[in-house]
Simulated scan of single mutants.
Amino acid sequence: MLKIAFCDDDLEILKELGILLDKYKKERDEDLTCTVFQSPLELLAAIEKGFSFDILFLDILMPGENGIETAKEIRQYDNNMKIIFLTSSPEFAVQSYTVGAYFYQLKPVWEESFFRLMDSVLAECTKTQENSLILRSKEGITRIDLEKLEYCEVIGRTLFFHLGNGKVFESVGSLDDLFLQLKPYGNFLRPHRSFLVNMDYIQNISYRAIKLISLAEIPIPHGKCSEIKNKYLEYAFNRKQVFLS
């Protein structure tokens, strides 16, 4: 179920958006929840308490704090939310994309444009969800693209997610639970109780360690080398990767 939020100080706009969303849900048979906010402060307070939304329709011109500034604060907690700005003027269009806006929608919002926009953003959300992992890290709520996850290690109760670009995210959790969650994808190998490896990043395997493309080395327990090599070769052959002998 995807979560949507509307934030606008104009009650009439909120009412119109609610009607459009109800009609969209009925015609498209979509399971969506919606939360309404009348001010940026209400919205930010909810996000600071841990509430998260997949899609946010955010008015730009509101009393107290405009939508651009609100979006900047939201990005401190959540880099994945699809933010759609609402405004009656195109003057903020360039600024809107500096905070990772998904779209810039001029008012009034007509049914045809709303439906087209919802079709697009829901397709993007579904695509992102199917190949990603959401975690609560020090940076806030973070969605990790699984193709970019090189390996994960656990120290105590802290999981360290190492991405191919060198970034590392920390989150509290269990490697056992993470492995069960990622197992259906088929490309994650657990060579050691403290490590989980994306086999797409393996450079070579020796009897002592797995060397990854980043040159990180994952230790292999004594006697496990053959088993790990066989699992990797099976994965590689299924992916139709080429081997030279």
Rank of each mutant, 00 (worst) to 15 (best):
C152N: 03
Y207T: 13
G100Y: 00
L41H: 14
S214V: 07
D54Y: 13
L175S: 05
C225T: 09
L215D: 14
Y207L: 11
R143G: 02
E130V: 09
C7H: 02
I218L: 08
K167Q: 14
D119T: 12
A123C: 09
G223E: 10
Q203C: 06
L41A: 12
E91T: 09
Q181I: 01
H162G: 01
D59R: 09
L17T: 00
L182S: 03
F114A: 12
R116Q: 15
E69C: 05
L163K: 05
V154H: 02
C125A: 07
M1H: 14
T128P: 00
L196K: 01
E69R: 11
T35C: 11
A209Q: 15
K138E: 15
E139T: 05
D8A: 10
L44P: 07
L21H: 05
R157F: 05
D176T: 14
F103W: 09
V154K: 02
A5R: 02
K3G: 06
F51K: 12
L133V: 08
G186E: 01
G140I: 03
E69V: 08
S132K: 11
S245W: 03
T142M: 13
L159C: 07
N204G: 05
Q95S: 15
F179T: 12
D22I: 04
N66L: 06
R143W: 01
L212H: 03
P40C: 12
T158P: 01
